[in-house]
Amino acid sequence: MGESKEKLLEKIETLKNENKTLKEEKSESTKKLRSLESKELKQNINNRQLEGKIRELKGEINSFKKTPLILATITEVFDDNRVGIRGHVGHDFVVTYPGSIDKEKVVAGARVSLNQETLTVVEVLPSKKEADIMAMEIEEKPDIDYDDIGGLENAIVEVKETVELPIKKPELFKEIGIDPPKGILLYGPPGTGKTLLAKAVANQTDSTFIKLVASEFVNKFLGEGARYVRQVFELAKEKAPAIIFIDEIDAIGAKRTHESQGADREVQRTLMQLLSELDGFESRGNVGIIAATNRPDILDDALIRPGRFDRAIEVPLPDEEGRTKILEIHTKKMKIDKKIDFDSISELTEGFSGADLKAICTEAGMFAIRADRKKIISKDFMDAIDKIIESAKMQ
Score class of each variant (00 low, 15 high):
239 K>E: 14
302 A>C: 04
258 H>V: 12
248 E>L: 11
218 V>F: 01
300 D>K: 09
263 A>Y: 02
295 R>C: 01
314 E>P: 01
260 S>R: 15
235 L>S: 12
267 V>L: 04
303 L>R: 06
279 D>H: 01
269 R>M: 10
232 V>W: 01
283 S>L: 05
213 V>Y: 01
282 E>F: 05
232 V>P: 04
295 R>Q: 08
319 D>V: 04
290 I>R: 02
237 K>F: 00
286 N>W: 00
276 S>K: 11
220 K>V: 12
220 K>L: 09
294 N>F: 05
246 I>D: 03
278 L>Y: 01
218 V>I: 12
309 F>Q: 07
212 L>M: 08
262 G>F: 02
266 E>Y: 01
245 F>P: 11
216 E>A: 13
235 L>A: 08
316 P>I: 06
245 F>W: 15
226 A>W: 01
321 E>N: 14
274 L>Q: 11
239 K>P: 03
256 R>E: 13
214 A>T: 10
259 E>L: 13
290 I>P: 03
293 T>P: 04
257 T>W: 00
259 E>Y: 07
269 R>V: 09
242 A>E: 09
284 R>W: 10
215 S>T: 15
290 I>N: 02
216 E>Y: 01
302 A>E: 03
255 K>T: 14
320 E>V: 15
276 S>I: 00
249 I>C: 10
253 G>K: 07
280 G>S: 06
216 E>R: 10
